[in-house]
Design a protein around this nucleic acid. Structure first.
Lengths: 130, 130
DNA sequence: CTAGACCTTGTCGTCAGCGTCAAGGCAAGC
DNA sequence: GCTTGCCTTGACGCTGACGACAAGGTCTAG
């Protein structure tokens, strides 16, 4: 299949596919006229990449998963390097969740104080304007 | 005080202060020789900006807080526009927490499956190498 | 023969919040 | 007068994953 068809089947753009190739993640064949030719395996690779990026991975993080798929595994997750990345990402997410939780608490208290202040400044329903 | 001193007291850089000014968030006086001159109120403004950016706000989001401080309030939080932004940001954070939680669960299951697969492929402690 | 629908490479633009020079003016101490 | 150290404006760089466009080659249908 050519790049346009792969883009459509993978739910992405031709620009994106060429970008992945430029970064060494996808290796299409070339037909006589220079067109990129992809097989079904490459489609699975691209879908793996997309799935991981959607979850917040960077392109560098994706490499082990692609290599794992290329090595013949049914899933890109099962290779040691992939597991390392998964562990690291999980730790990162946990860390981020903690900080985001702290931010949430701070925003909540800020909001509470602001509203309390308004109640205080305007004891009744209407403000000072009569 | 001049820009260097403000930068140090606010824990930031002169570049950053000029950037804030270019975006209309800080309004220093100018001395005869063209130097920027800041007072204590501007220091508080800059600290407010920094605090909000650290929490994940964008520059546009901090404008109401700066205006609120400039209006003479002890806190930048108490004005209606600030409260609106606080509410919106809290909702955004909640939303992000949800999605990040979903990502966390997905990573967790992916990791579990990968490890289960490895256990399956290597039943004993050592691999096939004797 | 030509229109149109693919494909190619290459280059610049995007978003945000600055960092990092570059080239020069101003003030103060020796 | 000279160095040191602050200040000024201006302009490019950076990160990441692409979007958008240009200029041109290729294949097919009519």
């Amino acid at each position: 299949m050519l790049i346009g068809e792969l883009a459509e089947r993978a739910g992405t753009s031709t620009r994106t596919l060429r970008y992945y190739e430029a970064h060494g993640l996808v290796h299409p064949q070339r037909s006589a006229n220079g067109y990129r030719v992809y097989d079904e395996a490459e489609l699975r690779v691209v879908r793996e990449i997309r799935a991981l990026l959607d979850v917040g991975f960077g392109l560098e993080d994706v490499r082990p998963f692609v290599a794992c798929l290329r090595a013949g595994n049914a899933s890109g997750d099962v290779c040691p390097d992939s597991v390392l990345v998964l562990r690291r990402k999980l730790a990162e997410v946990d860390d981020y969740l903690d900080r985001l939780g702290a931010v949430r608490r701070q925003l909540h208290t800020q909001l509470s104080h602001a509203i309390a202040h308004r109640e205080e400044t305007c004891p009744k329903k209407r403000a000072s304007a009569p």
